[in-house]
Simulated assay, not measured.
Amino acid sequence: MAAAGSPSVFLVSVTGQIESGRFPGFDDLYCKFCFVYGQDWVPTAGLEEGISQITSTSDVSPTTLVWNFPIDITFKSTNPSGWPQIVVSVYGPDFFGHDVVRGYGAVHVPFTPGRHTRTIPMFVPESTSRLQQFTSWFTGRRPEFTDPRVVAQGEGREVTRVRSQGFVTISFNVVTKDMQKLGYNVSPSDMQDPSLGPLTEGIHMY
C-alpha cells in the first residue's frame, strides 16, 4: 500500500516545435498535429491539436520547409501504458489548387526527460487501382484518412496501401514529475539509444 501523502499520478510535460519538413517537389505546405494517448492519460494543460502557418522553401533552404510551430501540453497518468504519440499531417495545394494531404506520420513522445529531436518518415495513402488513381487526380480528391489519429493505431492499418513521401523533424523538451515515486525509473542513460523499443524506451519497473 502506498504511504500516506505519496502521489497517485505522475505528470509528463512536453514542449517543443514541429521544426521543419522535407517534401521534394512540393511547396507552400502547412501541417496539423494532434496527440493520441491511452485511456489512463488525461491532458491537464496546453493544446491537444493545432494547425501551422503555410510555409515555402527559400533560396537559403531550397529543400526545407521551416515551420517552427510550437507544441505545449501536460499529461497526467497512473501508468506508462498508452504513452502519448504525436500525429502530424502535412497538406498543400495540388495542380488544381485543391488542398491535399502530402504526408502522415506519428512518433511517441520521448520516454526520458530532456531535449530530443525526432525525424518522422511520412507517407500518403494510395488508390488501389489505376482507375481510382486517375479519378482521384482528375477530381482533386486524393485518398486520405477521415481521422488522422488512425496513423498512431495498429488496427486497420495493415489493409491500407501507402507510399513514403517526405520527412518531418520535431524537437521535444520532456519533463516528468513523480514517476520514480510511483516505481518507474526513467533512465537518462537511455536518452539517445535509438535501439530501444517504442513502448519500453527508458522506462523500467522496480
Rank of each mutant, 00 (worst) to 15 (best):
G38L: 02
N68C: 05
P198A: 05
G183Y: 09
F96R: 11
I120Y: 09
D94I: 05
R157K: 04
P80L: 06
D178E: 11
K32N: 14
P80I: 10
F123W: 15
S171K: 02
V186P: 03
H204I: 12
D40S: 11
T135H: 13
M205W: 12
G50I: 08
L182Q: 03
A2N: 11
G114N: 12
M122R: 14
F10V: 05
R118K: 11
L11Q: 09
M1R: 07
I203S: 04
G25I: 07
F138G: 01
P93T: 07
M179T: 15
Y104R: 05
M191A: 15
N173Y: 06
Q180G: 08
P194H: 10
T128S: 15
G5P: 07
G140W: 03
S13Q: 15
P125W: 12
G183C: 03
F69P: 02
V9G: 04
D178T: 08
V100Q: 09
F138T: 15
S127C: 15
S58G: 06
G103K: 03
H204V: 13
F95T: 11
N173W: 08
V9S: 08
W83K: 00
Y37R: 04
I86A: 03
D40V: 08
M1C: 04
F35T: 04
D28H: 10
E201A: 12
P143M: 00
E19N: 13
V42D: 01
T112L: 03
N185K: 14
D190F: 14
R161K: 15
T139M: 10
A3M: 07
H98T: 08
V124Y: 09
L47C: 12
R141P: 06
P43V: 00
S13M: 13
L29C: 09
G105A: 06
V159G: 05
T160S: 07
T64P: 00
Q17H: 15
Y37A: 05
G97Y: 10
L29F: 02
P43R: 11
G103M: 01
H108K: 13
P80A: 07
R102H: 14
T135C: 10
V100H: 09
R130L: 14
D27R: 04
T55C: 01
Q85C: 12
P70A: 08
S195L: 11
F33Y: 15
N68Q: 12
G92Q: 00
L196A: 14
W67E: 01
K181C: 07
L47G: 06
T55W: 02
P7S: 04
V100N: 14
H108F: 10
V175Y: 08
T135F: 15
A45C: 01
S171Q: 03
K181V: 06
T64Y: 05
P70F: 07
T176D: 11
I71Y: 00
V90W: 00
S77V: 10
P125L: 12
P7N: 09
S8G: 09
G202H: 04
F96G: 08
R142E: 13
Y37K: 09
T57M: 01
Q39D: 08
R102C: 02
G166I: 00
R118H: 01
G140V: 12
D27T: 07
D193F: 02
T63H: 06
Y206M: 10
G156S: 05
V175P: 02
Y30N: 06
L47M: 09
W137E: 13
S89C: 12
L199H: 14
P110R: 13
P148L: 06
F138P: 00
F96K: 14
V12Q: 11
G183S: 01
R118A: 09
Y104K: 02
P84N: 03
